[in-house]
Design a protein around this nucleic acid. Structure first.
Length: 270
DNA sequence: AAGTGTACCAACCGCCGAGCG
DNA sequence: CCGCTCGGCGGTTGGTACACT
């Protein structure tokens, strides 16, 4: 026979995790590590499926998670990777330490996809949206000189210039401008994708002037990677500080744990 | 103030490849 | 080799918060 079943679905809890459940799961994993997800809920005292525990850990409880908004640089990189890899979110996420595939997928679906559409880019193909072609071609014809110049030098300076010129046109809608710019890049030797990467910052600033990219929250990268080392040696003050930062971030995000001091002292700062 | 629409994101669902027995 | 489960993945859903009318 094969392996034992992952879990008995009957009687298992579903839905949002409580602070107590998070506490149990995190305490168990930090104490015992992860050998088999099927056994985790059993030994951690949770009425959850192992799969659910895994998801909760990976997407929310993992100490090396980088919380906070995506930076523009990260967004640009996501677009670039998506153009190459498609919806392979885990592959994309592997380029972003501390970010989860779920987080990137959500960000793509709620933010980036919308912006690309406004820019006249098909988020699936990263090509210019077909029906924008007429607008674009009309605009492009009137910009022949600029087009030629752009083709000649193969740079994105022309499109960037077009962006700023279009911005000054009050009777041209934002979407039209974006489409025109997008097509402008298509008609040149520059691909839509390259155009997007080069001008994304300019355009997104205009599309969402209210957007404020908050600085990333405290980066706790590597803290978990070094967790075992620091918890065993405990002689490294920097390690202790790093772990302490993680604990504080967890406390911030999960309110108060009744046993956080217990975990803190026994695992990290002994 | 209440109702409705929209955005966001945590969590679930179902599929698939790898691997165990 | 086969039957089966696990772990991982991508798609989707549902709940909540916020914005708008």
């Amino acid at each position: 026979m094969g392996r034992q079943p992952c879990c008995e679905k009957i009687g298992l809890k579903r839905g949002p995790w409580t602070i107590e459940e998070d506490h149990k799961l995190m305490t168990f994993i930090l104490n015992n590590g992860i050998q088999c997800w099927r056994t985790v809920p059993k030994f951690a005292g949770l009425l959850r499926c192992g799969k659910s525990c895994r998801l909760r850990w990976i997407n929310y409880l993992r100490p090396d998670l980088k919380r906070g908004a995506f930076s523009e640089m990260e967004e640009n990189q996501i677009i670039e990777l998506h153009a190459r890899l498609g919806n392979r979110w885990s592959k994309i996420a592997s380029h972003f330490p501390g970010r989860t595939d779920n987080e990137i997928k959500n960000h793509w679906n709620t933010k980036i996809k919308k912006k690309l559409r406004l820019l006249g880019i098909n988020p699936l193909t990263h090509e210019a949206i077909e029906k924008k072609q007429d607008i674009v071609e009309n605009e492009s014809r009137s910009q022949n000189d600029r087009d030629q110049q752009e083709k000649d030098d193969g740079s994105v300076a022309g499109t960037a210039q077009l962006v700023s010129e279009l911005e000054s046109k009050d009777d041209f809608t934002l979407m039209d401008k974006a489409a025109a710019v997008s097509c402008q890049s298509e008609s040149s030797s520059i691909t839509t994708h390259q155009y997007l990467i080069n001008n994304y910052e300019i355009l997104s600033r205009n599309l969402e002037p209210q957007t404020c990219y908050s600085p990333s929250s405290i980066s706790l990268e590597d803290s978990f990677r070094h967790l075992n080392y620091y918890s065993t040696t405990s002689s490294s003050s920097s390690g202790s500080v790093q772990v302490q930062q993680w604990i504080e971030s967890v406390e911030d995000s999960m309110m108060l744990w009744d046993g956080i001091d217990h975990i803190d002292h026994r695992l990290f700062l002994s």
